[in-house]
Amino acid sequence: MTGRDIPLLVVDRLEKSFAARSSNPFKPSREILRAVDGISFTVLRGETFGLVGESGCGKSTAARAILRLVEPTGGRVTLDGIDVASLAAEPMRKLRRRMQMVFQDSTGTLDPRMSVRELVEEPLIVHGIGDAATRRAKVDAMLELVGIRAEFANRRPHQFSGGQRQRIGIARALVLEPELVVLDEPISALDVSVQAQILNLLKDLQEKLGVSYVFIVHDLTVAEFFCDRLAVLYLGQVMESGSAKELFADPQHPYTLSLLSAVPRVGAKTGRRTVLEGEVSPLGSGASKGCVFRARCPVGKDRAICAEERPALRPHGTADHTVACHFPGELSLAPA
């Protein structure tokens, strides 16, 4: 059951929609905002799967729906064969030990009155793990692992820097020895040099503990460097997914390509930039057919099929690389 090739997490056509706020309290709106609109992917044991996209693409909502921090409105999520959505409260609570989350801003998740040791011990107490002595041993080991020196364990969160607080947040998530950790933009509030420290730490911990990561990230450079496989999201849908290597070397979807070319890079001052027009904005509910990206798409803006038919995710080349585009590969990174 625990072979490496059997997926740990299977997300199948996950949906989460919200009723858009109505302007009239007596007339509820029928406008539905599809934050997550049929996302599917699998995460293997010990790998990092990235969910990449700009703000409003649904990546954070997807992460929360996977952990059932928000209730999904459709689709299935299974962790190690267990259907997460159908669990009752108590078994769900037990399952949470196996799937944890690290947030962008740990400061908000750390009670300022508790010491670091108490903060890291708290999840163990909540899940009734071990007696006081074993818990203490576990906490000390975990703190050492994330690089917080034992003599600082009695300090409060505000006495640490942002990077150190993120280490504490990671220790809190990992002390339960989860199999899956969802990392929601864990480094985007940090300085570049500190980002590197945290990324290195996460990589080391994965090697030591064999944990799988779902990595929510907007920074493509980081995604490319850190993820084994990833999915590029736009308005709640997967535009393209595959191994990081292939996706960045040979992007097929115009959106992936535009995203890649938009990143300012050191040592790559070229004229290959595709500047997208407009901004991410959900289409009205009447426009549910067709491709969600078409309004900004340099390829399909004026093409009939893009307005009529929503493109399915189709394999491209290798079985793992899939693209949701009627005209994959038409836009390319090579200078025109």
Binding site: S161, G163, V192, S193, V194, Q195, A196, Q197, L199, N200, K203, T221, V222, E224, F225, F226, A244, K245, F248, V266
Partner: peptide, 23 residues
């Protein structure tokens, strides 16, 4: 130099990033 090397570089995937220790 250290600042530049702490930026993830796709050419060095699989290696550790060069973090600047301390604060």
């Amino acid at each position: 130099q250290a600042l530049l090397e702490s930026i993830p570089d796709p050419a060095r995937i699989g290696t550790r990033l060069r973090a600047i220790p301390g604060m």
